[in-house]
Design a binder for these strands. Structure first.
Lengths: 197, 197
DNA sequence: TATTTGACATACGCCGCGTATGCAACTAAA
DNA sequence: TTTAGTTGCATACGCGGCGTATGTCAAATA
């Protein structure tokens, strides 16, 4: 059966991605030994090189997976809000809070850009920026926000969020810092609105 | 003479920092071989370990040096402006543009945080955040900006700036992207003002 | 001048990566 | 069904980089 073989291959890839994701998230990219985490998945570095070319290729695959999950979560958050503006704000807040999760923090915001450069540059991955951009575009079309370059705004917000999360995550009092950051962030976003009531 | 010896030591340290700064800035932290760049400075890894403990320690020293230079530049920029608000805005713009320089980009915004964590957390280095905070504090005292947590605002702005710079630096058309980013950034900052005229 | 300290070099071993090679299972044609 | 070719993965090897332990020589101190 063709299926059998293809399924085995897909399973191998999935196991490698899962093991790498775990290792990168827990120990960091540089500290994660390929021998170690491939062995943990019952495989060897041979399989890794075969499927992903090198360590960076695996990181890329891991990032792609996480990005897809994050995008889905963001879309759910904005869809659940009472109106577009609130949806957008909640989306941003959710973004900050996702960046608090160590796995996302380390892989998406710390090691990813450091190892691969600006990920949002290559087309396959950056669902998150796209999600933010979409929300902003709609708000702009409705005249709800000031006249600002959409992509620029999305990236500035993205940067502020991830940086804030980084700060929070390294804080002595993450809870309190998180509250302060979110409050400040909301205030900053208010500056984008046309008619603040 | 005491001086002689102390000067030699200071010179050795300075040579190591300079060589590392060059190597980290050009090749990146991970790719820079300690053997290579110490040899380039006419020294060996022995000197490095003696003075800085390890590779991270050297990175720390390099970052400290660059941070001081950046802080001085920012202070000059804001001092040269016609008023506080303009000074603040120009400071932010200058921050983005400094982050365009490959050395600052790689060392301060890419490898630094990746290797050492949130640098602005440990006290010795974060002149830049402090400079931004000072400006914001004064503006707030004058009632020129909305009621927002100063430290939070400084960090959000810092994050947006560095991210914008990262984006610009990786862009196909850095010039144009830079203009767009700066314009958007100004618009975002306007949202902080109390009486926009 | 004898002794000690400290600045730096040298030497060694380990680990992690990348590549070259090997092998067994599967596929496809004869 | 046999056989030739392909593919998924493991094994084997070499290299370079890092950290440490040790050595050495000049300056500082007495």
């Amino acid at each position: 059966m063709r299926r059998q073989r293809h399924d085995m291959i897909a399973e191998t890839r999935a196991k490698l991605i899962a093991a790498a994701r775990q290792a990168f998230g827990a120990a960091g990219y540089a500290e994660a030994s390929m021998d170690d985490f491939t062995a943990g998945a019952g495989l060897t570095r041979g399989a890794l090189y075969h499927h992903f070319g090198d360590k960076k290729g695996l990181l890329q695959a891991v990032i792609h997976q996480i990005d897809a999950e994050m995008t889905a979560r963001l879309n759910r958050v904005s869809a659940a809000a009472p109106n577009r503006w609130e949806g957008f704000v909640e989306e941003c807040v959710a973004y900050i809070q996702m960046a608090l999760e160590p796995e996302i923090q380390r892989i998406m915001f710390r090691d990813g850009p450091a190892v691969l450069g600006d990920i949002s540059q290559w087309p396959s991955t950056n669902g998150c920026i796209a999600a933010l951009s979409d929300s902003l575009r709609q708000l702009k079309a409705e005249g709800a926000i000031i006249n600002i370059d959409i992509e620029v705004a999305a990236r500035l917000i993205n940067g502020a969020s991830s940086h804030a999360a980084f700060w929070i995550a390294n804080s002595d009092t993450p809870e309190e810092t998180s509250r302060r950051a979110v409050d400040g962030f909301r205030a900053l976003l208010e500056g984008l609105r046309v008619d603040k009531k």
